[in-house]
Amino acid sequence: MIKSEALTKRFGQTTALDHLSTSIEEGCIYGLVGSNGAGKSTFLRLLAGIYRPTEGSLTINDAPVYENSKLKQDIFFIPDEIYQMPGGSMDSMARIYSSLYSNWSTERYTELIKRFPIQPERKLSACSKGMRRQIAIILGLSCMPKYLLLDEAFDGLDPVIRVAVRKLIADDILQRGTTVLIASHNLRELEDMCDHVGLLHGGKILFQRELSELQQGFAKIQFVAKPLPAREEFAKQLDIISFKTSGSIAEMVVRGNPHEIQQKLERLHPLLCESVPLTLEEIFITEMEAVGYDYNNVLF
């Protein structure tokens, strides 16, 4: 289990992570979302052993990560920007990784090469951004890690490769119980892949839970009635996050169990009352608005 306690990381005067405490179970696909500068990449780099925590602790199975080369054998980090080793190719990188990771699987590497349209001897400098990301994923999976850390995992990948990568990761989790952490702004993709989500803002975890549970905690309601009750009428019974009206139609986002919300609204005798679950993106925006981080504050 990945566990952090009061994890803090400062860069000079800037606090990237501020007493972040969380735990991530083994075998889950954890989506790390957050605003720009929330600390997602910092958290991943701490987990990869690149950064040293300023305060607090970060452990995997009760062992600290930093300068723990034995533990790092089970961790593979794919950053948002892939390093191009001068004069390197996928094969030369594979040689390096195979010499460092004791779990390196040449069979897996060979198998993955066949699946992806990449020439292993091609120089990295001659590869596109997407191709380098594919290479990183191939190499990472070939290291057979227990913990796969992905920062903007699918950035630059075409839709076909995205699907392939998602499938590979899912297979890995199923077969080997790999724990995957993905930091991304592509919430739609995360929604399809992840079973756990954590929202970071200002260096702290705003919330973290199972995706299904998260989605069950919000409802988007379309309510039609003549006359339409005032917002206050609704607010008596519901925890309203956002409320818009257009004539006889009210659209509102409400926190709570959608089924219970539906039941409460039926008492108001609507002409129409429909409830749909929020997407992760909508949840993200909603929660961000709650902490004052919304697009209305962005000047155009």
């Binding site: 306690e5 009061a6 040293r52 925590p53 305060e55 607090g56 602790s57 970060l58 452990t59 062992a63 600290p64 990560v65 930093y66 300068e67 723990n68 080369s69 034995k70 533990l71 040689r95 390096i96 010499s99 460092l100």
Partner: peptide, 28 residues
């Protein structure tokens, strides 16, 4: 509360001059 500023971790003890070191040297 523990910190990870120290790298004196029992699980971190490793042989310094091993094949991994040799491979790193050769790669360099």
């Amino acid at each position: 509360m523990t910190t990870t500023t120290s790298s004196s971790n029992p699980t971190n003890s490793e042989k310094l001059f091993d094949r991994q070191m040799l491979r790193l040297y050769v790669n360099t």
